[in-house]
Design a protein around this nucleic acid. Structure first.
Lengths: 262, 262
DNA sequence: AAATTATATTCGAATATACGAACAGCAGAG
DNA sequence: CTCTGCTGTTCGTATATTCGAATATAATTT
């Protein structure tokens, strides 16, 4: 977009790619693996890995495999601490989950993805597998569609230059159909999702506004077998209540627009 | 201990120090600030910062101030994903908190510090300010003392070469006194803390064992004004129950010792 | 016990990075 | 309207990093 893709610092790229490789992969790698996968000479990556271990960003298992260390985690939490109102959000979401017994979420838009910033787990034994920090294409989730409510088809197209790729067999893949659904949702005040991002999961969401703009959204997710009209009505009532509380909270705490979005 | 403190990679150190500076400081810094504080020439740090922003580890506000970006968070969560049994732990701790209405925690030992890996917030309006990823000296908290139960005075002294520094006015600062308290706690099965790490907070903890070794601990924290004999008895019963459930869980999932400790 | 296959480290030559003074652009003060 | 102080960028030279073959060390196989 506006970044100069050239003129980047090779060593920095290598260090970050190393961290990403180790963090995003369930397998653990040795120095040779890393050298091989990232095409970095072993003698070059060696002192870098030593330093990463020394600083606690990586740790080294007795059998020469690297894994992510606490310092990396510590840096990462710095990101969430920027959203220092999240504890208050959690209280509000807990009230929702405690009544309807289903997982609730708070998310913001990050590029074209929904970024989950808070999740309150359902107390029920069968529950959704999701976690804070997850990213999913916004058009495939209720939370995400709530974040797109005010966007034109052109704005949305800009977010997904490659088109709307399906996540499940029910994911919307047509821009016009998406925009029509958003228009209906905006009129009704609720956004629905039926197994569009997770099989067997239905979801209802509402947007969170600050001075007329949508800055975030909240949702409740339910396994299809626990979903019926009565539950839907309950969830919608709870979401509207939570929506009001969160919008009030944001205004009360005078959180800047800057600090709300990512 | 075993790391070669020399022979480190200067550029890597600089990048990591930059990330730490930005992550650990509530103030936001400009390129010049970073150059100044870390004693790195501006022309040197400039391409590094560009690359960090390009990769999403930092983001740049319109007024030239850097803050932590989502990629850093993403790497950090890789650390928690190594503890992939934490969701199960959360369920068990939720049961504790839902009955006694106070915050519960799960932690491991990291050096001489307690590392909080899971926290379930109290539903009560007045509650402890703490969060996952926090580190406190082990000797100053119930959770931490539970992790030290099986250590000799010499082992403990090795963890704190600078002695036991007080966190509050009630923190234990004498090794012998600490060891005596641990012995009593081991006999009784419960570890107590009375405003030793947080003013107005009392805490009870129990250790979590795997094949005879202490690998983790759990605790319940209470504001002093909500603490009485009846609550203490309730918390102790809940902790013993949760302790059994977690130890069973760890054995059932066949989680290796390696993956439990940090 | 020798051979093989892993691991990471060493070394000097080649090269990319780092340095710091000078520069450019912008915002606010006087 | 210039000056000052802030931002980040540019440039040639100096220097530290990088490269890849060779080496060391350890574990495993034959």
């Amino acid at each position: 977009m506006k970044e100069d893709n050239n003129n980047l610092h090779r060593t920095t790229l290598r260090i970050l790619e190393t961290l990403e490789l180790i963090a995003n992969n369930p397998n653990r790698f040795t120095l040779s693996d890393i050298s091989d996968k990232l095409q970095i000479p072993k003698s070059t990556i060696s002192p870098i890995l030593h330093t990463l271990v020394y600083k606690g960003f990586l740790s080294l298992t007795p059998d020469y495999h690297y894994r992510i260390g606490f310092s990396a985690y510590n840096i990462g939490t710095g990101f969430l601490h920027q959203f220092n109102y999240l504890d208050e959000i959690e209280k509000i979401l807990s009230d929702v989950t405690n009544v309807c017994l289903e997982a609730s979420h708070y998310a913001v838009l990050s590029g074209g993805d929904v970024l989950y910033l808070k999740k309150v787990n359902s107390p029920e034994p069968i529950r959704m597998v999701s976690f804070v920090g997850n990213k999913l294409p916004a058009y495939s989730t209720a939370l995400g569609k709530a974040l797109l409510l005010n966007m034109s088809v052109n704005d949305i197209k800009k977010l997904y230059p490659g088109g709307l790729k399906p996540v499940t067999e029910h994911t919307i893949t047509d821009f016009t159909e998406l925009r029509e659904q958003l228009t209906k949702a905006k009129q009704e005040g609720y956004v629905y999702e039926i197994e569009e991002s997770n099989q067997y999961i239905r979801c209802i969401a509402v947007p969170i506004h600050k001075s007329g703009k949508i800055v975030a959204s909240i949702s409740v997710a339910t396994p299809v077998f626990r979903y019926d009209d009565k539950k839907e009505a309950l969830i919608k009532a709870l979401l509207t209540d939570a929506q009001y509380k969160i919008e009030t909270l944001i205004n009360t705490l005078e959180i800047s627009y800057e600090d709300l979005i990512q």
